[in-house]
């Protein structure tokens, strides 16, 4: 089955991972800007990162016949530095018309601080003024519930935003309901220890239905599994769910959400299904 990984940090992965993804049926990936594991020191550091995301990474993905889209922002972990964050936000429009740029992301909260909230709101303002899609990171572990509710407060306070053009990512059992009830898209991230397992993701599809629901690996430089989406596909099959339902979640839904971006271009793969998952 062909699938799309809607959230994966391929700059942190080796070229062999692209090859493996392709062999598993992955035809496209979307890569939000995120934290490199250390705080970048200047706006030029971000400019180079955005050049990598918008230029080189597309080329590297194409070597394995995978299409690559991206999202730009300064992530929540670096948002404590409000001055640098404002410099980066002012620089982002330089790249928004580059091919493959789908919107602003992954913005959000990390430790739910005042500065993170200020920078999040300024990203929202940029997205609203430029009519961009938004991809949102919700916090980890004990901070997730509180942070997700704060994020939803800020999103719902801004009357300019169309909720169907916002994806709230890393939802789990205690946050998915509010996200979907408010009309947003929701992403489930499959991680080895934190976030969500393939089996729990299946549970949430069964409880909430497949509408506005995405599944991703969020593969990055930390413990993560870039082929986690095929794990989800297998878990759904083992429960007896239909190929049509699985395809909706892992292929059609990402296309529907991303398709709202003015920069979205997608060449469907050949109709013949590859061997594998």
């Amino acid at each position: 089955m062909y699938y799309i990984d809607p959230h994966i940090h391929m700059v942190s992965r080796v070229t062999d991972d692209y090859e493996t993804l392709a062999r598993m049926g992955c035809v496209a990936v979307s890569e939000p800007a995120f934290w490199a594991g250390f705080d970048r020191g200047s706006v030029d550091g971000f400019r180079d990162y955005f050049r990598q995301l918008t230029q080189f990474e597309q080329k590297r993905a194409s070597w394995s016949k995978i299409q690559h889209w991206t999202w730009l922002c300064i992530n929540a972990k670096e948002a404590e530095d409000v001055k640098l964050s404002r410099e980066v936000i002012a620089m982002i429009p330089e790249f928004m018309d580059q091919p493959g740029v789908l919107g602003i992301g992954e913005i959000g909260l990390n430790k739910n601080t005042k500065n993170e909230a200020i920078v999040f709101l300024e990203h929202l303002d940029l997205a609203a003024k430029t009519d961009e899609l938004i991809l949102i990171h919700t916090p980890h572990l004990e901070d997730k519930y509180k942070g997700t509710r704060m994020i939803l407060d800020m999103l719902c306070d801004d009357q300019r935003l169309d909720h169907h053009r916002v994806l709230v990512d890393h939802v789990e059992e205690h946050t998915i309901g509010r996200v979907l009830e408010n009309g947003f898209w929701a992403g489930m991230t499959l991680y080895p220890t934190s976030k969500c397992t393939p089996e729990r993701a299946c549970d949430m599809v069964e409880m909430y239905g497949p509408e506005r629901l995405l599944v991703n690996s969020a593969g990055d430089w930390g413990p993560s599994r870039p082929v986690a989406v095929p794990d989800f596909i297998m878990a759904m099959r083992k429960r007896g769910h239909s190929e049509a339902l699985i395809r909706k979640v892992v292929y059609e839904n990402p296309l529907e959400f991303f398709g709202q971006s003015r920069n979205f271009v997608f060449t469907p793969p050949e109709m013949s299904e590859p061997a594998g998952v």
């Binding site: 909230a117 200020i118 709101l121 004990e142 997730k144 519930y145 509180k146 704060m150 789990e172 205690h174």
Partner: peptide, 22 residues
């Protein structure tokens, strides 16, 4: 149960956070 376990391991939401931060 899964949702309630998640909440047991979560920090509480604060109603007045907007006033405090913004």
């Amino acid at each position: 149960r899964a949702e309630r376990v998640q909440l047991a391991f979560s920090l509480d939401y604060e109603d007045g956070w907007r006033e405090k931060y913004l």
